[in-house]
């Protein structure tokens, strides 16, 4: 922890005190920036997997527990709030490239031997998307959709994944300070933090799809 100028020192001369605090802020800022820049570096010894051409790509698996703010949270950002069962969750819009509505005409092709949370494949605008059951991924149970309840898929950036959810509630604009960020994400790595005035969990979508975990099984 960085020491702050003592109260007595600051009382001696305002001018010196202000200079000292300014210097400390700069050091603190530098320290925080360096922490942020380290966050998503690949740990040494873990090679990057080559991507197959034409493959249904997956988001880069999380190789280490995220410990600091994700990239999208470094400045003001927008989040889309959506319903999962009775809960409302939010996901950063920076990680969502499109929202598709799922209805009776949406054909979902199930694949054998896949985990429960993998709902199957669906085509949107000629693109094959892998649908993941968000409710199962966050540790809930698969519930039959209520009559008339609309279902949607949040299509994520950096891979052909869609998070299946219920109604889209709204879009919110957030600042870093609007969220209580989780410092330790060893458990529930997908929960980046809580939007304070809504008491709504902000999801880190890249940590939600447990591709790496499934491959280990």
């Amino acid at each position: 922890m960085f020491g702050r100028a003592g109260f007595g020192d600051r009382m001696k001369t305002d001018r010196v005190g202000q200079t000292t605090i300014g210097w400390q802020d700069q050091v603190l800022l530098f320290y925080l920036r360096s922490l942020l820049s380290q966050t998503f570096d690949r740990p040494e010894g873990i090679p990057a997997e080559p991507e197959k051409p034409g493959a249904l790509t997956t988001p880069e698996p999380i190789s280490a527990v995220p410990t600091a703010l994700p990239d999208w949270a470094r400045s003001e950002f927008q989040a889309v709030c959506f319903r999962i069962g009775r809960m409302v969750l939010a996901a950063p819009l920076a990680e969502v490239r499109r929202i598709e509505r799922l209805d009776d005409s949406t054909k979902v092709t199930a694949l054998p031997g896949k985990p429960d949370w993998f709902q199957g494949l669906a085509r949107f605008h000629g693109e094959i998307i892998q649908l993941a059951d968000t409710e199962l991924l966050i540790g809930g149970k698969r519930a039959a959709p209520a009559d008339g309840a609309r279902r949607h898929a949040l299509l994520l950036n950096g891979g052909r994944w869609g998070l299946v959810c219920g109604e889209i509630v709204d879009l919110v604009r957030l600042r870093e300070s609007d969220v209580r960020w989780r410092a330790n994400r060893k458990r529930r790595a997908w929960a980046a933090g809580t939007i304070i005035d809504r008491l709504c969990v902000l999801v880190d979508p890249r940590s939600l799809i447990p591709v790496a975990r499934c491959q280990d099984k």
Binding site: K52, G54, A55, L56, T58, K107, T109, L111, P112, G113, K114, P115, F118, L121, R123, G126, I128, Q130, V211, C214, Q215, K217
Partner: peptide
């Protein structure tokens, strides 16, 4: 297109890929 990269090893082994044909996969 290559098959999705999730699930048990067995299915990853025998599903060679997916393609769109006649309006379905």
């Amino acid at each position: 297109e290559s098959a999705p990269n999730v699930g048990n090893e067995e299915s990853a082994r025998y599903i060679q890929g997916v393609t769109s044909h006649g309006g379905e996969l």
